[in-house]
Nucleic acid binder design. Structure first.
Lengths: 312, 312
DNA sequence: CCGGGAACGTATCGTATGTTACGTATTTTG
DNA sequence: CAAAATACGTAACATACGATACGTTCCCGG
């Protein structure tokens, strides 16, 4: 059953589109009614449960199924096997290991699960918290952090910052602290693609301190600094500020002392039930800004990217 | 919200500043647009559009499909016809009337639609309006990505990975791609504090390729690789795998080819309404793992940290 | 270093599935 | 009311799908 013709494109780039209307009709439950009837445990759980006792090939099957759950399992064995990069028999052995007599039975189970899931849209929102709650308070706290962070962030502010970052008449420098340096690097990696003169300051303090001499009023300095705030960064920010550099500060909710010198301050929530603070909120703000800047520099950035690809 | 558990951290709770947020970012770019017909409109809409001009039998088919959307359409023609109370040819005439060449093509369309829907369940947040934060689609998408990513991630799997990472008999190497290298660095920065022998592989390919000689069965290699997957990383992973190194792969939902060699695969959602892909989900998974490893190594890690502080 | 077993892929087979032709029923139109 | 056209189901058909047997490779233990 369920075969497919064209379009096996394993990984097409972006996918977006169409939402479809939900149908609030009752389902005349026609259960296939055969085989092992107890579907109390979802197939996804079943997989997570046994994935460790599987051989390599079947594990690849399991992984691709989980990654594209459950659509790939609704396609044919051939499609499934191709996307997983294994042979058809491996797929069949995989579903057999899950306890299904044959492939159609496996598909029926997936379909029933899907039907149950789609029927009550509430069940989704109900099961989601319960699962993620059980999974870890960590993710819940992170979600809260994200929401809170953005709640205190006006899009006017974001746009202003993006505008400043998009202004490539001046240079742009990024620097971070011990744990936040990767964020600076992440941002720099993207921005350096869509605009010129982006520099990620790394290495010894003396190295980037000397770069101060190149900085002026038209330049932007992006600093990531969460506690414990590093003295070196504070000193650096102060000197940069004295030279008239525009400072954009990413910090935590307790505000680094650098906030005193900053033109723009982004305060992200960092508290999570972990020995470490979380930089996830700042990371997402950074991604949002990267997107905003890119959008703002269109079509300039697109041209630049194309030109870059040509250089390979 | 914002719960704080256990050990560590002097943290004053809250602080608050005002400011509201609303962000009307539009821009959704291109759709995949392949296939014989442009599916800009969902199939459900297509049906609602033409259902009036259908003969009785096909209309019954349409109704049963809408009532059990889309699951019944994923089953066989026989199942569909039986549930609709019509014959098989009627079903085929029905899908033909919708503009599909044959039944498999119709099923493919349904599957694609389903995949797109499951990927961005943004429509799911009916509760969003109640929360006055009409946040940007960007942050909403990111929140969805996080939820979806963790929904497919059992904590059993997380714990096993954490366990492997906590095992410091062997060495631990981290490496990332063009945009994900900062994630590797971020993780390395934390793990290097709580356990010995953590190495972030950076610089030229030849640099870290030579490190292969130090790697063996007891070692762990953490790779971040999202599309476009980098050949250099794939080659590196393959060689490491041949040496028996345990590979933990952070990738996107389309699974880097490295998944073939990986002992553990973490598939994070990356789709956001932006020209760039989002690594936020992987970032949060990384943070979660960092926390889990730290907790697992207690009180060893605490002692190590204290000792470190003494070295200043 | 060698033997045994597990794992995976290739090739083949039987069959369930989608498809089509044709005959009957039902509705439409002059 | 008759004749035609449309709609629908029955039954036969061919394809492609899932299943299986078999050979090769890889890995582990002796």
């Amino acid at each position: 059953m369920l075969r497919i013709l064209s379009h096996c494109a394993p990984m097409n780039d972006f996918i977006h589109f169409a939402r479809l209307c939900q149908t609030p009709f009752p389902k005349s439950l026609g259960d296939t009614g055969l085989g092992t009837e107890t579907t109390t445990t979802s197939i996804a759980e079943l997989i997570a449960d046994r994935i460790d006792s599987m051989p390599t090939g079947e594990r690849r099957a399991a992984q691709t199924l989980v990654a594209n759950y459950p659509v790939i399992g609704l396609k044919t064995v051939a499609d499934f096997s191709q996307q997983a990069g294994v042979s058809s028999p491996t797929i069949l052995r995989f579903v057999a290991r899950l306890g299904f007599q044959n492939y159609p039975e496996f598909q029926s189970a997936l379909q029933d699960e899907l039907a149950a899931q789609l029927q009550s849209p509430a069940s989704r929102t109900v099961t989601a918290p319960s699962r993620s709650d059980a999974a870890s308070p960590m993710i819940e706290a992170t979600l809260d952090n994200l929401r809170e962070t953005f709640r205190h962030l006006s899009d006017k502010q974001l746009n202003e910052i993006a505008e400043k970052m998009a202004d490539h008449r001046g240079h742009m420098f990024l620097i971070g602290g011990r744990f936040t340096d990767p964020l600076a690097r992440y941002m720099a990696a993207h921005l350096a693609i869509i605009r010129p003169n982006v520099f990620h300051l790394v290495g010894q303090e003396s190295m980037w301190r000397d770069r101060l001499i190149d900085m002026g009023k038209r330049d932007v300095l992006v600093i990531f600094d969460i506690r414990r705030y590093q003295d070196s960064l504070i000193r650096f920010a102060e000197k940069a500020h004295q030279r008239g550099v525009q400072i954009v500060l990413f910090t935590d909710q307790w505000l680094s002392p650098i906030a005193r010198f900053a033109r723009h301050v982004i305060a992200g929530r960092t508290a999570v039930p972990s020995p470490w603070d979380s930089s996830a909120a700042l990371f997402v703000v950074a991604e949002t800004l990267i997107g905003a800047v890119t959008r703002q520099m269109e079509p300039d950035s697109a041209r630049r990217i194309r030109e870059m690809e040509g250089l390979r």
